[in-house]
Write a protein that binds this DNA or RNA. Sequence first.
DNA 1: GTCTATATCGGGATAGAC
DNA 2: GTCTATCCCGATATAGAC
Lengths: 216, 216
Amino acid sequence: MKTAEKILVTSLDLFNRRGESNVSSVDISLELDISPGNLYYHFKGKEVIVEALFALYKDQMDKVLQSTIQKEINIEDFFYFLFLVLEKGYLFQFLYHNQANLSENYPSVAKAFSKHLILQEKCLEKLLEKFMSEGSIKASNVQIKQMVELIGLVFTQSANYYALKGQDVSDETHLYKGLATILFALLPYINLPQGELHQLQEAIATHSLADGLTQA
Amino acid sequence: MKTAEKILVTSLDLFNRRGESNVSSVDISLELDISPGNLYYHFKGKEVIVEALFALYKDQMDKVLQSTIQKEINIEDFFYFLFLVLEKGYLFQFLYHNQANLSENYPSVAKAFSKHLILQEKCLEKLLEKFMSEGSIKASNVQIKQMVELIGLVFTQSANYYALKGQDVSDETHLYKGLATILFALLPYINLPQGELHQLQEAIATHSLADGLTQA
DNA sequence: GTCTATATCGGGATAGAC
DNA sequence: GTCTATCCCGATATAGAC
């Protein structure tokens, strides 16, 4: 692995674990056993590193979105898709964790982030509208918009919410809790045979045992 | 107004507008036309200021919660109560805006905050359970817990979500959008005559015209 | 490509005069 | 209570040798 790549991998890891603002360029070079000067040879400042990491994030996320548009997915696949998005977010959690700082210190990244989010939500909206026209979802257009907003809220903020409550966010359990929240909100509008619905719920609930959601 | 009080008021204003981490003690003294040394005479560092502001926040929030327990409120009052909580949060938005930094730089505040949140959610849960036993809400215990979690998510994170999407959060409009999201998620479980429900929805929707939620 | 050494800058903190 | 002056420290940034 080239030094440049090693820097990105290590930075991502440190950012995710300690928060971007708590990691200085010296910390990164220390972790890699290289000198600060060397780090600067590859990346002229933390900003460039953050930008490079965001580009990676965007690439991977776009691939997930792309796959949804191409394959004709049904509403059960949909929840799996939601999980994939949550999971990608988890890999780059530092982007969500410190977004206030992020937008203040790296406005270019913040702009690209919000642009990407809006696109992502457009994509979600299209999907839900398709389900609506197919009859697997019963809702008005306004309700669809509400669903999109709620999903966006869970995607981008649920980790912060759990962290604020003092819960550990280092494992992936909370992803399932987020998924359960989305399922809870959408369920009343989903038009599926009871049996299949329960199957879906159980699949999600088995992963979020901790909170007694299993009885859902 | 005493200097100490002026410092608190000005700090709150600056924190809310620029974010706590972007406001240095010198900024505060500059805004007040006093010297940094004088500021330190009253508050030995920003930490003490943040702690004092959180104490204020907690006091005011507790009063709102208290009022709910004492008066026997019905489910329509409930949404007004939710709005009051959202509004109090708005007055101290800096606590929510930069929570990652907050918990890293002021662990004592973070601990008190999470403790307060958990208490608040207990209070919410009790309220919802009361509505359930009265029949105005039809839901299982697990669904009640989900409602509480969703409300907590909106309370603490919706401003961050809108900010992340690049929207302006300086006015109070987004409070109504948050309220609309909660209403959207709870509505299927609420057991009220259609007429009264529509009244509720409209009352909320008239305040969030911007997003076409009026048609809800 | 990588190192050491150093310059710069901003924020937090404090001593001592008034 | 309030001010001025100063110190300390951590982080960014860069120059120049190897």
